[in-house]
Nucleic acid binder design. Structure first.
Lengths: 205, 205, 205, 205
DNA sequence: TATGAATGAGCATTCATTCAT
DNA sequence: AATGAATGAATGCTCATTCAT
């Protein structure tokens, strides 16, 4: 968020960070259980371990909590995705490793991803743009990994679309769990999706 | 909805149907604009063309409106998907036609699909199960079309997963429009996704 | 208030009138006791005899209550002032009678006048303009009565200023009661102020 | 204020004085802009140049700030009025000079006078009495000047009432500015009011 | 059947005041 | 003396739901 700084009346930056962490942790739990709209600011404050008055020393509006939560989720996903990309392999192997890591990550963060999908619309335009840019960045990371494996008949534009496909396939493991997780184990799911991807990219199985 | 019947105090079935149609139409418009939580029952009644008192003759809780809306969306998608499947072609051709039709449909119903994704969590367990069953049915329809084109190395389980992939790729055209619709026209999007699908299914381009 | 109509969600005009009367009566009592800011909307509703929800069916914001109260006060003053002017006397006599009536009126409405003086600043610009116009109208009424008694050396501009003087002298009987009402009875106060006025206008005592 | 001393926990009298001056200056500015109720203690502290904690070292309740502000206004008016009275003229001339000075003063202090009129009711009884006594003192000063010009047919009681009239006419220049300052310049206003006063007191023009 | 006035629990947000440092 | 983080009671306002007509 651009004017991150102005959001809090508290001067001690470290304290702000600490309280925000408490807040995000508490709010995340509640949002998972009942969604943003059904969670009250009082509940958030209580779950975070401080009073409603204190909560409002660190935010201006309830919506700010949502922003901090969504932002934290994105950061978490991104940092873990980066880790996976730091291990350098040969292009095809790298794609497999990164995709696997991403799918495993999405499995672990199912609830958080659901929050993003269902509540993001409650953010204001500015926060939304900010957050969507983070998503674009992550897709770009995936895209670059794909580009390294691109066969001659596919372009970087294809890489972009395929990155989106993988991205959404990772998310769908969580938000379609009622359908997918009855049919597949995570391992099976990953294997099959990777197989389809390899066919598409003409990578030998 | 299982106890569809109990929902309304009104006896005249036709009237009930008429009022529900009005209600769904009005509510859909409002949900598209501001989501379920931000829409009030008063607004729904007004948009539907009757009073708040009358609205409550046809529902018991605000949530019922959401159910009717989501149900109507599913029915709409399903019936249009059926139409597309009624035209019989050779298996591979059929898959292409049905997928194309589905993607075009998802393009037209972007807003409605967004409602489903974002508000479904507000349904109670019973309604949710009912609605998810409809989604399963539709995935099954797609799955069957895929099965007819399945190469030897893929199983019906793969068909199921691929059906899910297509299903979500259709939806993602709408809910990731901020990313996809800047890069692709609908036609391009469909062509590319079909190409990847063909590679996966070993259908010659 | 210009868009008086839009202020209420209730359709029955008569009921609106009735409820507003209740509301104004209750609010006036509370404002006299503790002022606008110290009075809560809940107290207003209770004093008016209905629930907080009902109160908000008849207003949009707390400030609207203040407007209705101030408006009612002005209307009351104006209508009683009109009555006094309807009795036709000779010019000088008329001025005396009207001024007397006005002072008596101000004595009776001390509390209400205090509300006007102390709370009017809480009205928004539009309401304030509307209300000040009413005050101008009343001053004009007084001015016209004075004009009929004007000696040669005074102009209509003087009449306007003298009208303002009388107007404020009437109000000051209430808001400076802690000083004036210890020294003078109302009768004495009126007599003396009239005497000074007669000297100024060269009316023989 | 009677227990002026008890109000602050700070021992150093000079410091107390300095802080109060800062506080009054800042609060006055804010009260002019938005009134007492709409100004928060935080804003007052900030405008005064210290922290909210420090503010509360020099007051006990928010209301105390109002008292200090009103008290300061009264002192300012009184001291300037005294200055004007120190220049000794002949009685009639003196009255004119003092009244002129008072009107000019009221013109300069319009905003402050408005604060007094509109917020004084928020003071507690004790502070109110204290403050009203100051107003009485000032009226007395004016009264004495009038007494020196009194014609035979008017008593000291008349002098008191006429002092009140002048007093309020000075204030009304500010609080009825929306009406008066469109019709008159300050000079015109003063001239006319003085003329009426002279007629009343039988002072030759 | 239809209406819409009434209700009040519930919510986000504010702000005077305190107190440990 | 000064600071500013913490508190929570208080408040304006909303809105799903009911029910008398």
């Amino acid at each position: 968020m651009p004017e991150n700084e102005k959001l809090s009346a508290i001067k001690d930056r470290e304290l702000v960070e600490k309280r925000r962490t408490q807040m995000v942790k508490g709010a995340m739990k509640l949002f998972k259980e009942k969604g943003f709209h059904r969670t009250t600011t009082r509940e958030i404050a209580k779950e975070a371990g401080f009073s409603i008055g204190t909560l409002y020393e660190y935010i201006r509006k309830k919506e700010d909590v949502l922003f901090f939560v969504v932002d934290a989720i994105y950061d978490q996903v991104r940092s873990r995705l980066r880790e996976a990309m730091d291990l350098q392999y040969a292009p095809a192997e790298n794609l497999v490793k990164v995709t696997e890591a991403y799918f495993i990550l999405m499995d672990e963060m199912q609830e958080e991803v659901l929050i993003m999908y269902q509540e993001v619309k409650s953010l204001n335009k500015e926060s939304l743009d900010y957050v969507l840019q983070k998503e674009r960045d992550m897709v770009d990371m995936l895209k670059n990994v794909i580009i390294d494996c691109l066969p001659q008949n596919l372009s970087t534009t294809d890489a972009e679309l395929l990155a989106n496909n993988i991205f959404v396939q990772g998310q769908m493991w969580g938000f379609r769990r009622w359908m997918l997780q009855k049919q597949f184990t995570l391992k099976e799911y990953i294997e099959r999706q990777l197989t389809y991807l390899k066919y598409t990219l003409h990578i030998p199985i």
